[in-house]
Design a binder for these strands. Structure first.
Length: 154
DNA sequence: GCCAACGTTGGC
DNA sequence: GCCAACGTTGGC
C-alpha cells in the first residue's frame, strides 16, 4: 500500500466534483510532468490511498481522501486537439502521458490548510515533499506516518 | 496580479 | 552537453 498527495485546482476539478460523479470515480487527466507521470505509471497500485489537495485557491490544503481505482493507462486527453491538455507528441501507439482513475473516499470535516501543515515543518512533517521549498509537483508520495499525522489534525 | 522557483525547449 | 529564454505552477 502506497500513500500519495494529488493536487487539483478546485475551479478545474474539486473534491465535490469527484463526489458527485455517478460512480464517484474520475480519470486523473492532464498531468504533463514526467516525474508525476512516472509515479502514476510505475508506482501507483489499485487501492493506494491518496490525499486530495486543493491548489491555487483561497485556502490551499488537504480536503479529502480518495483511492487509486485503476491501473495506469494512456491519458486520452493528450490525443484530442480540442482538449486543453492536447499534446501532439503523444502518439496513441506510443503514449507519452499516463493517468489512473481515482475514487472518492471521503471529504474531511475541515480543510487542513497548507499554512497549518507548515506549522509542523520543523517537527513531524519535516520531510514532507509538499513543504519542500520550490516544490511544484502535482503528485507526490507521502510517507505513512505523515499521511496519518495529517489526518490526525482533522 | 506579482513573482520565485522550477521544467522544457532549442540554438550552438 | 551547455545554457539562455521562455512557460508554468502556485502561494501570497
Amino acid at each position: 500500500m502506497n500513500y500519495w498527495l494529488m493536487k487539483s485546482e478546485p475551479n478545474e476539478f474539486s473534491i465535490d466534483d469527484l463526489n458527485t460523479r455517478p460512480k464517484k470515480t474520475e480519470p486523473w487527466d492532464g498531468v504533463r510532468n514526467y516525474q508525476a507521470r512516472n509515479m502514476m505509471r510505475d508506482q501507483m497500485k489499485v487501492g493506494d490511498q491518496a490525499l486530495f489537495y486543493h491548489s491555487a485557491c483561497a485556502v490551499p490544503g488537504v480536503v479529502g481522501m480518495m483511492k487509486i481505482n485503476s491501473k495506469p493507462y494512456a491519458d486520452f486527453t493528450a490525443f484530442d486537439p480540442e482538449d486543453a491538455h492536447y499534446d501532439p507528441k503523444s502518439d496513441p501507439d506510443n503514449p507519452r502521458w499516463f493517468l489512473v482513475d481515482v475514487k472518492f473516499g471521503r471529504k474531511l470535516k475541515r480543510v487542513i490548510a497548507l499554512s497549518e501543515l507548515r506549522e509542523y515543518h520543523e517537527g513531524p512533517l519535516e520531510s514532507l515533499t509538499l513543504l519542500r521549498r520550490g516544490n511544484r509537483l502535482s503528485i507526490m508520495p507521502v510517507e505513512k506516518q505523515h499521511f496519518d499525522f495529517i489526518l490526525g489534525l482533522e
